[in-house]
Design a binder for these strands. Structure first.
Lengths: 168, 168
DNA sequence: GCAATATACTAGGACATCCAAGGGTTTGGA
DNA sequence: TCCAAACCCTTGGATGTCCTAGTATATTGC
């Protein structure tokens, strides 16, 4: 999308904040902006790896989640809660995965309101392959040092907990 | 969008990775997933604060960038590079900002291919107000400790540099 | 000086996310 | 028992991001 900039635009923003008298929040602003940008970079990498498999990250996450479910099936609302996305986003993802024959919808045995999403054999196979690819090409080469990884997990875990993601 | 989960879904995913023999990349996977989720939380907060001003984060970023430019104007391609988004995203944002009379497009004085984006008086005023709101309600209450902020800036800065965002 | 190449912006399309609403199913209290 | 409230999923709409062209303007090289 572009060649490297001569200078870090986020560091520049931080300097601008300080110059305008907002020095007290300049650092958190820079950290938050850096998180936004890092997410963008990581998402692009992930999507690039998944593309050959005909998957997007949203669809992969759902497929992976199902592959870890004991029965290979989950109610849509459960998936929505675990993936922490809006129910309509799950509807959207399931629509496309179902069209690709990677999952099927089936009625819940006892609750007529609920729809179960179930992996097909191809879905399970593709999930395995896509996971292997991500492990090799993204997670295995994140570029983060071991200590930094631990630190990120801890700091962002505390943040997510404080934000109300989970109790634990 | 949902009540807190009883357990951290990312920690669960990390355990699943380890259980399936991918322990060597389980931690980076968890760190990367945490970054994705943290970005989602932060974006929601930011959008919530900006909504009363009729702004989205994408439009705010462009407005803020212009407000720091000496002349209050920038070529679209410059904005695209500095914000590190696709040129079409800038076109999209400018379309809406222009419709709201916060910026105007004007031809570049010497290069006929280039379009300059320029802040209007209202645009400048709104940028100031929106920035104050974000400083008070988001950046000033990030929930990250000072040391963690410094660590995030350093680690994510190294990552972005390695990813080719900037030279410096 | 002119053709070939590079650059800048925009139009159209595919996806993802969220919100607001609507229709069907369950549950719970009067 | 029965109706209101709660819950589940889907549809439709607004935004944002990217990609792939297509048009217009500059630059380069012969």
């Amino acid at each position: 999308m572009g060649s490297p900039l001569p200078r870090d635009p986020i560091a520049d923003a931080q300097r601008n904040w300080e110059r305008h008298g907002w020095g007290d929040v300049a650092a958190p602003m820079a950290a938050i902006t850096a998180i936004m940008r890092t997410q963008q970079i990581l998402l692009a990498r992930i999507e690039g790896v998944l593309k050959p498999y005909g998957l997007t990250f949203a669809r992969y996450e759902l497929l992976a989640l199902l592959s870890f479910a004991r029965s290979g099936a989950l109610p849509m609302n459960k998936a929505s809660a675990l993936l922490q996305v809006h129910p309509t986003s799950v509807t959207n993802a399931v629509d496309r995965l179902e069209k690709a024959a990677l999952v099927v919808r089936s009625p819940h045995p006892t609750d007529g309101r609920t729809t179960l999403i179930e992996l097909t054999a191809e879905g399970r196979t593709l999930a395995k392959r896509a996971t292997a690819a991500l492990n090799n090409e993204v997670f295995g080469q994140s570029g983060f040092g071991d200590e930094d990884v631990e630190h990120l997990i801890r700091v962002l875990g505390d943040f997510r907990k404080a934000a109300g993601d989970f109790t634990d």
